[in-house]
């Protein structure tokens, strides 16, 4: 399998985030990891990126064990994390190594900026762009190094609703064009259903996979589609128990310590 996780666990000192995560992700698939806050979905993604140590188990990409960050995995964070001292174009070429000629770099930057419709802003500085535009630059930057897999950690979480919808459509086009494998972390059920080929639902305390199913629906998927609504309900029911569990724990804690 392309991206493989075997019995992966993460602990911070005594606190266990999750354990026993087993996942196989195929090439050219858009896979979402969906779950309530605290389930460790972002931590898991960071482990794939190589930014977090793996406490137990192994992760591998294309047969190679993941031990540290690398250009075979591009990541887009919730914050665009663009470098303010570089122009949009220079931000996009940042990950390109020195063995690319200047012309190649220019061409690659032009290609990916065109893909995110920001050609016009190639000489602008990040702070001159809106939040949505900054996030598009971040996507172009991650794509520019031609990674095997694109990791996205709630990339549209900080954007307003309209911008988010526009970026969903753009991401779908990019997915069509580049056929990248995308691993997408979100807490939005709608977002996961709208975008993914497969949704992995994580539960919390302890973090674990509670459901994993394919979405075989044509794109674009409309929100009022019967099948979409049906699926939303199913996932909501799955997550409700998880959220209740967290709430109950918090209330019990309050009762114990304040009551």
């Amino acid at each position: 399998m392309f991206l493989q996780m075997n019995e992966v666990a993460k602990r911070f000192d005594a606190h266990e985030v999750f354990s026993g995560i087993n996942l196989s992700i195929e090439k050219n698939q858009f896979v979402s990891i969906l779950g309530p806050s605290g389930c460790g979905k972002s931590t898991l993604l960071s482990m794939v990126a190589g930014l977090e140590d793996v406490t137990e188990g192994t992760l591998s990409l294309g047969g190679e064990k993941i031990l540290q960050p690398g250009t075979d995995r591009g990541m887009v964070f919730q914050q665009p994390a663009l470098f303010p001292w570089l122009t949009v174009k220079d931000n996009v070429t940042f990950p390109l190594k020195a063995d690319h000629s200047k012309r190649e770099k220019e061409q690659l930057a032009a290609k990916y900026l065109k893909m995110v419709h920001l050609t016009r802003f190639k000489d602008a500085y990040p702070h001159e762009l809106s939040g949505g535009m900054q996030q598009r630059v971040a996507i172009a930057r991650a794509l520019a190094m031609d990674p095997k897999v694109l990791l996205m950690d709630e990339p549209f979480g900080a954007l307003d609703e309209q911008t988010r919808h526009i970026l969903h459509d753009e991401l779908m086009k990019i997915f069509d064009e580049t056929k990248k494998t995308i691993l997408f972390v979100t807490h939005s059920i709608q977002e996961a259903i709208k975008l993914s080929d497969r949704v992995i639902v994580m539960g919390t305390r302890p973090g674990r996979i509670i459901a994993d199913f394919p979405i075989d629906m044509d794109r674009p998927r409309e929100r009022d589609d019967k099948k979409v609504i049906e699926m939303e309900k199913n996932i909501m029911a799955l997550l409700e128990d998880e959220i209740k569990k967290v709430m109950k724990e918090e209330l019990d804690y309050e009762a114990k310590h304040l009551g």
Binding site: T71, Q79, A81
Partner: peptide, 10 residues
């Protein structure tokens, strides 16, 4: 996040 982003870019 700058450092994290840079690390993911090698």
């Amino acid at each position: 996040e700058f450092i994290k982003a840079a690390r993911t870019m090698g």
